[in-house]
Design a protein around this nucleic acid. Structure first.
Lengths: 228, 228
DNA sequence: ACCTGAACACCGTTCAAGT
DNA sequence: ACCTGAACACCGTTCAAGT
């Protein structure tokens, strides 16, 4: 009976929602948004496409679950920052890094408001905005601005990734775009042309954070003085 | 021969890129993102699906062209506003209204940087940021923040539209989400729960503009004093 | 040059049949 | 309860054949 115990069969564990979502994340990372197929996923799981439907209602839910898994991971640790600004920056950077590592998440993040895991982000941002002493009437606006900005960057990241085959060199990509900018009409696109160098040299992460800081500055600009 | 001149045949004009894109916009508006099909579009144009490929390379280009047509329309008039802030607000509102009327545009707007028509938006924002006396080194960040915020709202709008059948009542939708918020765990989602009323009553357009103002405040907060 | 429409390859999803 | 995989409906795209 040695042969039977020596090497477990290909199908090690039974299928489960967890395994399916995990395999979906791997597939999405490997081949990008267009590569997630029930057939490809089934092959990876050594089963037929129909089996997946026992654990997941369809592709939309699968995609959402994959994105949620990645984001939940990024939100896992609460951090030990001091000021509300620092907490917000850390939260935003955590999301940014997750999306940077899994660009397809960028498109999935934008969903009807109040779906997990974005409601968690909303909640965390809200608490910090509150801690910043933003008056109640202005909090929704402040949190929405931060969230929309984050979602915008996320979507842009996803679009950049989609426009290139997965794993393409980032510098080469930026060089190409910057080059295209310098070839624009000098009159109609004077500003864009003059910014080509900045585009080429900028660091996405730093730039993202600078945008967060801009919004934070706006949020805290006209706060009533503290009265404790 | 009266019968021949009385009523022109179904196929009035010859096919053209313009007509195709126009029909695509109508179809997208009528049935949403999922409804744009080469077969449905061909039927609307009283031709076969293959004919479309003579004028357009594929679905991606068609979608992009449809979005560009809508956005170009929204950017058509330059406005007569005075301050840079006012110009930026008017530009942003123009985009917002276009996306509000054609939610599917929201997903198409996010593309590789420097594609028309977003490079026009970038350019216009850049000129105003310059007019605000933002120093050169900070302009790229400022414009990116504004643009990413706009794209985030656009994407959120598109997601909301997608989550509902086209033409669903907006108030009912917000009521449902707000209701869901009030049913969240009181401890873990204290802030979100307390914001449900604001969500229900807020006006998207006003809120969007308030976010723009927040970023503008951040951009102008620490400018060096004018020295003219 | 431009249009036609059948055909191809591929996809999400279903479902009768199995264990 | 869970899995299998053939089958269905539908899609983007191609292309030989027409005008």
């Amino acid at each position: 009976m040695a042969t039977r115990t020596r090497r477990p069969e290909r199908r090690q564990e039974p299928l489960s929602r967890e395994r399916i979502v995990g395999a979906a994340v791997e597939l999405l990372d490997a081949v990008g948004e267009g590569g997630l197929t029930f057939r490809a996923l089934a092959e990876r799981l050594a089963t037929g496409p129909g089996a997946i439907y026992w654990h997941v209602t369809g592709k939309a839910e699968l995609l959402a679950a994959a994105a949620d898994a990645v984001v939940a991971d990024a939100l896992a640790d609460d951090g030990t920052e001091d000021t509300p600004q620092e907490v917000i920056r850390a939260l935003a950077l955590g999301l940014f890094d997750a999306i940077d590592a899994h660009p397809w998440v960028g498109t999935q993040l934008t969903r009807a408001p109040g779906q997990p895991p974005m409601v968690s982000v909303f909640e965390r941002l809200g608490r910090q905005v509150q801690a910043l002493r933003v008056p109640e009437a202005a909090r929704f606006t402040a949190v929405s601005a931060l969230l929309n900005y984050i979602l915008g960057v996320a979507g842009q990241n996803a679009a950049n990734a989609r426009s290139q085959p997965p794993g393409t060199d980032r510098t080469a990509f930026l060089d190409a775009v910057a080059q295209a900018w310098t070839e624009l009409d000098p009159e109609r696109y004077a500003f864009t042309r003059s910014t080509a160098d900045r585009l080429r040299d900028h660091d996405d992460r730093t730039e993202f954070l600078a945008g967060i800081d801009l919004i934070l500055t706006g949020i805290t600009a006209n706060l009533p003085p503290a009265v404790d």
